[in-house]
């Protein structure tokens, strides 16, 4: 299991478009991928779960990956978040 703290840098937080990008990327991996925010843990492959988190701009979350490709998944998703989901 791998985990890393990530920060949402987007102007509007983790709204529909970045969440869509995140779930699409996460779904490429076999590992279980979770996001923890304010004590709530959700499946990062579920867009509804991510949207319900309503992550505001600047917030920090814990990204947790667990499975055969957990390292690659962690790196790729962290990169996506750092690059503001390639949206801004």
């Amino acid at each position: 299991m791998q985990s890393r703290e990530i920060q949402i840098l987007n102007k509007h937080g983790l709204h529909t478009r970045p969440a869509t990008a995140f779930v699409t990327e996460a779904s490429k991996y076999k590992s279980e991928i979770m996001l923890e925010y304010n004590g709530v843990k959700v499946n990062a492959k579920s867009i509804l779960g991510l949207l319900v988190l309503a992550v505001e701009p600047g917030s920090k979350l814990m990204l947790i990956t667990d499975g055969p490709d957990e390292e690659e998944a962690l790196e790729a998703l962290h990169k996506l978040v750092k690059n503001k989901f390639n949206l801004e």
Partner: peptide, 15 residues
């Protein structure tokens, strides 16, 4: 992209 989000939501695994 709006449709992308709807497509993800319509088959959301947790749901």
């Amino acid at each position: 992209r709006i449709i992308d989000a709807q497509m993800l939501a319509v088959q959301d695994e947790e749901m």
